[in-house]
Design a protein around this nucleic acid. Structure first.
Lengths: 343, 343
DNA sequence: CTGTTAGCGCCTTCAA
DNA sequence: TTGAAGGCGCTAACAG
């Protein structure tokens, strides 16, 4: 790979002149400039960011650590981060943590060795173990969606509590009273928060969550499927259910169909996330859309500001979800039969 | 951030000694070693990979360029790459190209500036524009899934032709004769290859693809939905269809249901990819699973070998898909009625 | 307008 | 078993 020195020699100038034409950092005669540019072109010279970084102490690279880039939510987040970073000339280093503190720590360590300018961290369930490692560094960090109490950094997350609330209130307003919740793994904080929202909406209606109506499962189709099957097998099954994410909701839809339970006739189903395919489920899924992509962009903007030395007060924000009513939710059948309201 | 020099001073040794204890690269007395280690620990010293890279001319970083990390297929691929890279101590720099030659080129350029040791490139449709840029560099490259004729590099892809063939042969064997194909955008080479497989299977059965039975669309649920709707509105609609990916197949399932067409009774549907949710579609989707994750791993292994100077002959390979028969495909109804075969 | 020079943090001969 | 010193490719004073 050609170096600046070689370019300088070939063009008959000093390296500093080459450097200056590249960076437009001081006046260079038109004559020299074109000559240098020509040599750069003919030698296919591309400056070394690593040498530059050593000099400047800046890499224009940010690290991104997510639990699993394959999860649609994290994928969207990642895309938002990458887009925003690209626009300001930053590159992204990605690592999957798989909720494994060991792996996350190892990844983090190598990011720090590589001197990333900043880090977007989705800590997942393994957050507390990471705190000490993080605290010891002075790399700007923004936390995405999972707060870490022990570390004093900026944070932007989704408003999971409100998401659970919106979904449940929708069901309550439809007239449901036996509302179940399919939650993700107990260890996932987001799930707990959504659950809190469910309880709040229920409480407002003078209801409460029947323990038999709360089922935990893996946050994928299969988890949702199995949970819904269990729920539908109850002596007094729910007339509606909120699944903590769309994948689980899709699984629930499948289980309902298998059990011969009509949706939304006998069972209303609401998900969360609004994946692209939610609109093409059968029936089309009512869900609470999450601004995941936007979150990625904001996180990045915030991080870049921090990197630039912006010293705003510590930022903490939760972005609201938005209820998208489609066809998987409706009025409870028995309710209509027993007491046909209005209309 | 602490430097090696500071550590050396504090420990009362030379920087070369510190370097050697860190890298285990020559004998150091036990006394000195523990002292140095203690200082490293207390100063939270973490060596700078950028300085090291400048010296070695190696970054232990590989670039990954995909069209869109949000697409489930690329997400799986990316995960495979990241896993394999992590295991051998490499970090990944990710960029989305969005099938935009400009953006891909810009991204590539910054990866080269950052002196990645190698590149995994999913060129997408914009492949030809990239060839010159690539050819001028001597960075090891492995091409994933999209070959670039003009560049002489290793290549590992999916066997799209065989995928289309397997899906279609399955339908033919079931007794279908009016088989339609929902293809992705014309510009996508993978789609063309799958189509070729469809034609081969049809030809073997003495059939051919009715032009009216070939519909192109965006490779997502909506594209599949709209395409299927058009197909079902035909005077003589197909009895089976192969959608070039699961998302499109899911959309097709939705369209069929809306049109009151029973699956698989009146219409068999086969997809490709085997996304997690394919098994929970209604009916559960027959599809051709793709070894995408494995592809990512192999690509990475190959790349690392190239980086290490391995000079095997140019590698070219297409990984086969695997037909997964579930419930969305069955014998054609009319066929059974007109000429109930055997059984 | 242009060149010389001194590092950035690390590794690695070469000496001791 | 340890240290001194040069250099990786680039930038940024400082001189001219």
């Amino acid at each position: 790979m050609a170096t600046m020195k070689q370019v300088a020699q070939r063009a008959g100038v000093s390296t500093s002149t080459v450097s200056h034409v590249i960076n437009n950092t001081r006046a260079v005669s038109e004559d020299v400039r074109t000559r240098v540019l020509a040599v750069i072109d003919e030698m296919h010279y591309i400056p070394s960011a690593v040498a530059r970084s050593l000099k400047n102490d800046k890499t224009r690279t940010i690290g991104v650590s997510v639990p699993d880039n394959t999860n649609p939510g994290f994928a969207e987040l990642l895309r938002g981060i990458e887009d925003a970073a690209f626009e300001v000339g930053y590159t992204i280093m990605l690592g999957n943590g798989y909720e494994d503190p060991q792996r996350q720590a190892a990844h983090l360590r190598s990011l720090i060795e590589k001197r990333i300018d900043g880090l977007v961290l989705v800590a997942g369930a393994a957050r507390d173990e990471l705190a000490p490692l993080l605290a010891a560094q002075r790399v700007p960090i923004v936390l995405a969606d999972h707060d870490i109490a022990a570390v004093d950094t900026d944070f932007i997350g989704l408003d999971h509590e409100q998401t659970g609330y919106l979904a449940t209130r929708h069901l309550v307003e439809l007239g449901h009273r036996r509302i179940a919740c399919i939650a993700g793994p107990r260890a996932q904080p987001a799930g707990q928060e959504r659950l809190a929202g469910v309880r709040r909406a229920l409480a407002e209606a003078g209801l409460q969550l029947d323990p038999a109506h709360l089922v935990h499962g893996e946050p994928d189709c299969e988890g949702g499927h199995d949970a819904a099957r269990a729920l539908l097998a109850l002596a007094l099954p729910p007339t509606a259910l909120f699944a903590c994410n769309d994948l689980m909701a899709l699984g629930a839809l499948c289980a309902a169909q298998e059990a011969g339970v009509a949706v939304p006739g006998q069972l209303s189903v609401v998900g969360a996330d609004d994946l692209g395919m939610a609109a093409f489920a059968m029936p089309r899924l009512t869900t609470v859309a999450q601004p995941t992509y936007a979150m990625g962009r904001r996180l990045t903007a915030l991080l870049i500001d921090r990197i630039g030395g912006g010293s705003l007060p510590r930022h903490r924000e939760r972005l609201p979800g938005r209820l998208v009513v489609r066809q998987s939710s409706g009025r409870p059948q028995e309710h209509e039969v027993l007491a046909p309201t209005g209309t």
